[in-house]
Design a binder for these strands. Structure first.
Lengths: 229, 229
DNA sequence: TAGTGGTCTAGACCACAGG
DNA sequence: CTGTGGTCTAGACCACTAT
């Protein structure tokens, strides 16, 4: 059986985790490793490249490869579309548009998205329900200057997230997670008590250097974002 | 100049983002693409593999490659060591051990980490300060059965995170983010008001199938976890 | 069963950065 | 200047799976 890059990767990783190759130590170069594993250099290269991407080792031309002193830990969270998230839990999905107002972009929004003074915006408030229970509150602003056709979309029927996904499928995003307390209207919508701690995801989206949308997604109390790594 | 995998990747991505290859559409196979780009198949393969990893396209043997209907967006957050995080902000770091008790693992912990009935645990409570201001509250349990030498570590001087990092540099982690409200003691330590919404990171760590530690890191009100993708 | 992606190889050239 | 990683190539075989 041939030696695969996965074999090499697993073996190197085990040598690191069991202490044979301690943090900071120099790892043999690709040519030597290829010899010892009896495989091509490309195979070793792929194994090492992936370990480097995962923050386990650090590679530099000429300097060689070292085991990271403090491994860089990264958590990856999937950011699903709410509807998919709810359906995947086996619950029934329902969406409601609460408010939809076209207006000049307020100062704080212009500041945040770096919009010109005359920018127009569409302000949407929506709710997403799972089996009839409030799941997520969506407070969204869409930059009508960058995306004028949003003005004529019927957000009664299609959730803004999904409309935007079809309008601009790929974009640059800044995402921010934090805790805040539910004020009156939020508490009403989420069916919780005023002052309850809620988990909020704030997202700003750009498409080709143009700010497109800013959204605050707030979840019912108790919501968790979970992952493994 | 030779065609690089980055060229190919960028070109494919642009064809997707500008709508030439809409969501759901079938992408030409690797051999054909290699011909049109005038490069080796391996080059196309690497470009496509990365796009697939990034959730832009979906690949299946025989079925071919498709542009994802709803691109899987993944946010990656760096999980830094608190001390590094604070120092990088240009603030002075200070650490305090508030409590350190060795005791039988409570039921909820045994349930969570799947520990045997007789498991012993070390319960630590610590604070991390930035420029003297409360930054993070740490409530940690270490499984002494899996990691007996933790009993003799001097957590007065070294923070558990850092001690653990040297004891078990690489591990399997489950992480969970949520909002909760500060109860009395937490509010005291974080210098905030009881009931304030606080952001909490909960982490369970395994090393070679053995649960090692469970920790709740709670940040002062207003803390945000931010990233771009 | 046949088409597609997944991977390995052996060799080559190059870019970068340490000494 | 030279060692190391980064990448490309052309060809090959294999694994999966849609049809």
């Amino acid at each position: 059986m041939k030696v695969t890059y996965k074999d090499v990767k697993a073996d190197i990783l085990s040598k690191i985790t069991n202490g044979q190759w301690p943090p900071g130590s120099l790892v043999a170069n690709e040519v030597d490793l290829a010899m010892t594993y009896g495989c091509a250099r490309a195979t070793v290269n792929r194994a090492m490249r992936e370990l480097a991407e995962e923050g386990i080792i650090e590679r530099r031309r000429k300097a060689g490869t070292r085991v990271r002193m403090t491994p860089i830990r990264q958590a990856r969270f999937d950011i699903p579309v709410v509807r998919d998230e709810i359906i995947q839990k086996g619950a029934a999905y329902r969406y409601t548009l609460l408010s939809c107002i076209s207006q000049p972009a307020p100062d704080w929004l212009r500041a945040r998205l770096d919009l010109p003074a005359e920018a127009k915006a569409l302000h949407l408030i929506c709710m997403h329900y799972a089996d009839g229970v409030p799941y997520e509150h969506e407070d969204r602003w869409i930059n009508l200057t960058a995306l004028p056709k949003a003005a004529s979309a019927s957000f009664e029927e299609i959730a803004p997230t999904e409309w935007l996904l079809s309008a601009i499928p790929f974009s640059e995003v800044e995402i921010s997670l934090f805790a805040r307390s539910a004020e009156k209207s939020l508490a009403d919508y989420l069916d919780c008590t005023v002052g309850d701690p809620v988990f909020t995801v704030e997202r700003s989206t750009w498409w080709r250097e143009n700010a497109v949308t800013y959204v605050r997604l707030t979840y019912r109390p108790g919501h968790r974002l979970t992952t493994r790594y």
